[in-house]
Nucleic acid binder design. Structure first.
Length: 561
RNA sequence: UGGCCCAUGGUGUAAUUGGCAACACAGCUGGUUUUGGUCCAGUCGUUCUAGGUUCGAGUCCUAGUGGGCCAACCA
């Protein structure tokens, strides 16, 4: 099969260039390096697809590396959740790595740095150091400890490691240039004292390396060829390279850091800090609340890994600011779910429909196609009887020609069943329609092949038999934020845009075949949308999440009028 | 009042590296359809501005404009 030439993103161009300039394909290695301080979200999904995707196209290994240098924020719970999410996405990492595995090397390298006069122990307060650091427009000035003798630095650093000092008393700083136009080069802190247990090294260490003294070295130790991160790390690149300069040897590969723009999604936030706030303030039920843009939330909502990967591939990667429209994500779930979801009938806003010429007490089982997109999906039987539920929105006493549904005197087909005609309706004291009476054409049965069954009527309705249907909880979701860019307002906090009606729990009436559904099962409720079974399901009650609605042209027509 | 990064339709990304601006989504029109779904066809619309180099510029240069990042013992 001729494959159309795929266009490359700018990262792939860089790699192609490296390959042309003599990089061996065997030297390619990537990594996905999350900090285990929260759950992965759609932004991470993009990065995962980028790195692991590169691994697949170049047949190169990809490490999963936990950037765990801050025990104050990191937990094993997050490590486990991250591994689960990456696996669910369908990717296999080569090595499972931890920055904390390199603490000894990092310490040794720091000692080496001190010995060569390129690092010193600073004993000032953080305020004093901040003051000397200057501002983006003004150079910094040297601090009083900058020229501390090597022996004294060595002694103090060792005692920091031995736990002789409390937090904040001393730090180890690189000696670079307090006047550099790049703030990060103004003698960055390399090590700080933290008397906290680490989820892996426990209390073995009480000094912890900073990000900049860890990331490049970790890449180097793992021989990662291309270290990809988001744009806000661009200013760190100079420091990344400075750190590598201190320790790379000629016969080993020198990693390259390259930066891409993080993906923003409209009507949501993708920042661990902000997602954490939604969880802590109880706006959502947890990190895996189906409204969350986390991978675990999307999974619970009924999204498939394929949908997310296709989405990530479609939006690609670049260097400019962006807000990707959620409709693109929704397109990809629908596209996949349409292919794989069995069709079923469920009524969410029931209106009783009585077929007056259908014998009382009679029932029959009609044959229904499971998935018109998949011949192998087969057929099932659905029960039909005199009393049915249809959707309230599917009946009007009067309506114009654009309304393809049931109206008095009008005809409609009941999906997989008969053509019916509405004759009358009953109202309660407030004037609400509570029942519709209709007649059916016994010869019009679907699939019977009779002349009547072949008749074209404009509308087809889904339905359930009142006697056979069973109740289930159905959770309908709306976007979590009313604003397209909730954290894009300087004067307003993103929390102000939280949609108060993002969750609507209702009771639905489902066809009996659904009784055996188990957690995670996905269905298309015909004419309504895609739904999956939520983990809150119990032996007594099934709970469904609406993953996404079907495309709804009728809703658009109505909006216009 | 500094340094760095970025600028292509409503959205996201491409453009054989200087050679006919393309793909997907969204929107709109129509067709098919026992899901107002799917599918099919059509349509809409773009290189931030001003100069320059060139036979030729989205691509290179200069200036401007707009947006972003940088002053955590976070990553």
């Amino acid at each position: 099969m001729e494959e159309t030439k795929k266009s490359l993103n700018f990262i792939e161009h860089i790699i192609e260039e490296d390959l042309e300039e003599g990089y061996s394909n065997d030297a390619l290695r990537f990594r996905f390096p999350p900090e285990p301080n929260g759950y992965l979200h759609l932004g991470h999904a993009s990065s995962i697809c980028l790195n692991f995707g590169l691994g697949e196209t170049y047949n190169a290994p990809v490490n999963l590396r936990f950037d765990d240098t801050n025990p104050a924020k990191e937990e094993k719970e997050y490590v486990d959740a991250i591994k689960r999410d990456v696996e669910w996405m369908g990717f296999k990492w080569d090595k499972e790595c931890y920055a904390s595995d390199y603490f000894q090397e990092l310490y040794d390298w720091a000692v080496m740095l001190i010995k060569s006069g390129k690092a010193y122990v600073d004993s000032q307060s953080s305020e004093a150091m901040a003051e000397q650091k200057g501002t983006p427009t003004e150079p910094g000035v040297d601090g009083p400890y900058r020229n501390r003798p090597v022996e004294e630095n060595l002694d103090l650093f060792e005692r920091m490691k031995n736990g002789e000092f409390e937090e904040g008393k001393h730090v180890l700083r690189a000696k670079i240039d307090m006047a550099s136009p790049n703030m990060l080069m103004r003698d960055p802190i390399l090590y700080r004292v933290l008397h906290k247990a680490h989820h892996r090294t426990n209390t073995d260490w009480c000094i912890y390396p900073m990000y900049d003294w860890t990331h490049g070295q970790s890449d180097y130790l793992e021989q990662v060829s291309h270290s990809l991160c988001t744009l806000e790390f661009l200013p760190h690149r100079e420091l990344y390279d400075w750190c590598l300069d201190q320790l790379v040897s000629n016969n080993k590969l020198r990693p390259k850091q390259r930066e891409f723009a993080r993906r923003n999604l409209s009507h949501t936030v993708v920042s661990k800090r902000k997602l954490l706030k939604l969880v802590e303030e109880g706006v959502v039920s947890g990190w895996d609340d189906p409204r969350m843009p986390t991978i675990s939330g999307l999974r619970r909502r009924g999204y498939t890994p394929e949908a997310i990967r296709n989405f990530a591939d479609t939006i690609g990667i670049a260097k400019r600011e962006n807000i990707v429209d959620v409709s693109l994500l929704e397109f990809h779930v629908r596209e996949h779910l349409n292919k794989i979801s069995p069709r079923v009938m469920a009524v969410l806003n029931p209106l009783k429909l009585v077929i007056t010429n259908y014998p009382e007490g009679q029932e029959e089982w009609l044959t229904a196609e499971n998935n018109p997109e998949d011949e192998s999906a087969g057929f099932r039987e659905v029960p039909f009887s005199r009393e049915l539920y249809i959707e309230q929105e599917d009946f009007r006493e009067e309506a114009n020609r654009k309304f393809f549904r049931l109206k008095l005197g009008g005809e409609v087909r009941l999906k997989n069943g008969y053509i019916i005609k509405a004759e009358s309706c009953t109202k309660d004291a407030e004037g609400n329609i509570i029942e519709v009476q209709c007649t059916y054409d016994p010869k019009s049965k679907s699939g019977s092949g009779t002349e009547e069954s072949l008749r074209k009527v404009k509308g087809t309705l889904h339905w359930v038999s009142t006697r056979h249907a069973f109740e289930a909880e159905v959770r309908l979701y709306d976007r979590l934020f009313n604003d397209e860019n909730p954290d894009g307002h300087k004067d307003k906090d993103f929390m102000e845009f939280v949609n108060q009606n993002s969750l609507n729990k209702i009771t639905g009436f489902l066809e009996p075949s659904l009784k055996d559904a188990i957690v995670g099962d996905r269905f298309q409720f015909q004419r309504l949308g895609y739904f999956n079974v939520d983990k809150d399901t119990t032996a007594e009650k099934l709970v469904f999440n609406r993953t996404v609605t079907l495309r709804d042209t009728w809703a658009k027509i109505q909006q216009k009028n």
